[in-house]
Amino acid sequence: MIRFSGVSKTYPNGVQGLRDVSFHIPKGQFVFLTGHSGAGKSSILSLIIAEQQPTFGEVRVSGYQCGKLSANEVPRLRRKLGIVFQDFRLLEYRTIEENVAFALEVTGAPRQAIPSRVIRVLTRVGLASKAKAYPKELSGGEQQRVAIARALVNDPPILIADEPTGNLDERATRGIFQLLQQINGGGTVVVMATHNLALVRDTGYRVIELKGGEVVFDSGQDTPAAGPA
């Protein structure tokens, strides 16, 4: 599903984000990207979602070669990805259901099918009762669930989560993590960047640790899809 082959990324200001990074994430895998701030976690995610292009090497995601996408192909790739950020990135003036529906509208989904799909995904993340609320009326954990619902509503084969629990308390963190586990249980690849080592420990999921833009540890190199131990 995701393959990095000898990928380096140097930013225009000269900062080296990644150095010769290679890994393969097969279908159905849950992968943690760990490391300190600036280790290269976000660089990897931004290459996967084609926000950046690699300076050297090749990034392949769902059959797309991310470094060589035309302007028209980038949206097509992103429709195959669900993306969740630490800061939720919800539209404040839209209700929860409108925020989720928005992701379907922009992809040109049939309009009559949108309400039922939105309710289904909100039920899945446990927020069906708050469909008419606005983001500001929800807790941080709930807002992140909305972001996850929005990421899932297009049934993407891959979910990318950049520090999704970074702004949440312990309880909300556990809740979000359990939700991501459930999503992965349905066959979706989950790539989660985090520096919360307590969360990573004992899960049995694959861990790719980065330091100074290099992969310094990979618990599951060339292993097939792996669920919790």
Binding site: P75, R79, R89, L90, L91, F102, V106, T107
Partner: peptide, 11 residues
């Protein structure tokens, strides 16, 4: 956000 969820530039 629009770009993130796969909206085309035309949209």
């Amino acid at each position: 956000i629009m770009r993130l969820v796969g909206a085309t530039n035309r949209y």
